[in-house]
Design a binder for these strands. Structure first.
Lengths: 190, 190, 190, 190
DNA sequence: TCCTAAGCGAGACGGTACGTCTTGTCTTCCA
DNA sequence: TGGAAGACAAGACGTACCGTCTCGCTTAGGA
């Protein structure tokens, strides 16, 4: 018996494509990976690839979405509802540690800066939520800029951390992030 | 008179190549620009291109080096010898305003994040110089990370500014940068 | 119905490539024909060309092989088993008349002397077969030279004929070939 | 002293170009030799080449013309005025032996069949002169064809001889040529 | 004796073709 | 019926030559 339902085959195909992509990014960086490479490594037909994804960037982003939804589960799963910016960032560092391999492939130079763009978008949204009630238009620095700054800083720090092979534990990294950003925020809120 | 020495021809060729590249990046982003496009726009032979530059990235970086050397002239030309981090950043914003067109092409998404990498490298070096004497190993946050953070933040802010069509004057941007980063640095030095 | 199997597509592609090559050779001579020309005329992708043939010479020779295998069918189809040199040459002239267009492209200057080389090789082999039993080592002229001479003469005559637009019928040409070559052979065999 | 007149410089340049071409043809065959190769080997500037010759074929033919004028001196120098076809052919074989190196480069495959075409033209003209008085229109084989045949045969034999490293002396080769062609001519003249 | 014109090397240049590589589309075949 | 297989048109890649075009250097033969 042991038949395989169509859906399961589809899931399987997507999984091997993602896995192949991660492998190849780690080997030579996202920019150098071609569709050719991926389908060969994944042992998948050319047309099969294109029936699932528009192009290689689409595959990449789909992988990132998966990762992000795991991150969101991690987030709601373990912290109190109304978390602050630095609760959020802690989860980011912890999550990155849990999935070191994947992060190494996606973050920074290897990931072709593609992930940074998307992660920035999602992170900004979350951070805006945590800050928007404490902020009013009279502040000297627009909320938009502050959020942009915090997201960028977190990603920059994360990238540094991953590319240096996680030399400190997540909690230490988060403490650093806090030391680097909190004083400015506090003084503005004062 | 008006003869053209070999050297001048070479300079001319490089100039039209740079100009063509900038134009094309502004039109469709660095990642979409091909060598084909550039030589066609610049009216330059294919082999001529390759006799000057290894590939399109090489052309891009050569353009960036030009820009950076202008920046360095700007820097030494107008500030006192021992400038601080926020004197430096002010010059960055001013320089970007002077060359809005070029910066628009090179910075951020349009520039394919290529410039960010190199600018980060150069900025970090300059910033490390201004900070290294005030820092000692006992600090909670390593100098390396602080410098990485400052350079990343400045570039992120610069990118935001340019991509939003310079909504504030350079001085205002630098004040914002200072408000976002100085408190943390001060409290660490205290 | 009217489905097209992969194999049929391949055959079709090769056919249009051959046809395009013949056309172009007739227009400007083999030496001037580029791969670019051929694929443009045949409406075929560049890489498709190279997936079928190593280079333009390969395409040319593949066309020649086709022609030669037709010739061999013609040969065994209509003559008695043990044909002599001048039975063979008659078939050559007849075959050239049947495929005037192709021969015009391949033979002589237009064909870049490429076909001559290969045709010489094949013709020599056939002629050696018809002569080798009647020859012995004591002859004043080595068999190798005689065969070389006969093949060269036949090709030269054929070239002249085709380049002068077939002014005589094949039988007349063969009679001429016989008058030019047979007396010497006879006198040697005597 | 030893000044060099302009004319002598020109002669010298042409000579080194010819020499370089011959060397290169012997090394890799005419078809593979580029202008680039020649000027590099001859240590001559690119524009200098083009001020002397239209292209590489022009250089080749100029070399052939030199050789041919040597041949004509050889011809008138040593034979009686009204020579027959086989006196002519003997001189051809002798001349080839005297200039083995050059012939090896020009004749046959190495020479890209270019020389054959021109030599055929010149030889035909000479042979037509020796035969035209003995021929009348009533002959079964047109003079034009006979001449074409004789010239082609001689060149084919010469090519064979040179490409096989001159295994026989010139006189023997000429005797063979005579045996292969004379009987037919005699029987036609009878 | 100067100087002017020519021969030359060097090599930048716009162009064209090469043979390779990758893309995204499409069709057939098999399980 | 979905996926593997792979042919295909399209077009960019980096390389190799082409033939044209300056440019300076050298060196002669006439002023």
């Amino acid at each position: 018996m042991e038949k395989e339902s169509p859906d399961r085959r589809i899931q399987r195909t997507r999984k091997v494509l993602h896995a192949a992509l991660i492998e190849l990014i780690l080997e030579k960086g996202f920019d150098k990976v071609t569709v050719q490479d991926v389908i060969q490594r994944a042992n998948v037909g050319r047309s099969t690839f294109y029936s699932h994804y528009k192009d290689i960037e689409d595959l990449f982003l789909s992988g990132f979405e998966n990762l992000w939804s795991l991150f969101e589960q991690h987030l709601t799963g373990q912290s109190v509802e109304k978390a602050g910016v630095w609760d959020l960032s802690l989860v980011v560092f912890q999550h990155a540690q849990s999935y070191t391999g994947v992060y190494r492939a996606l973050v920074g130079k290897q990931g072709g800066n593609l992930m940074s763009t998307h992660m920035h978008k999602y992170l900004s949204a979350l951070m805006r939520e945590t800050l928007k009630d404490q902020w009013d238009a009279s502040k000297q620095v627009p909320l938009e800029i502050v959020v942009h700054h915090l997201a960028s800083s977190l990603i920059a720090l994360l990238t540094w951390w991953v590319e240096h092979d996680l030399p400190y534990p997540p909690e230490r990294m988060n403490a650093i992030f806090q030391q680097l950003t909190q004083p400015a925020i506090e003084s503005m809120l004062a």
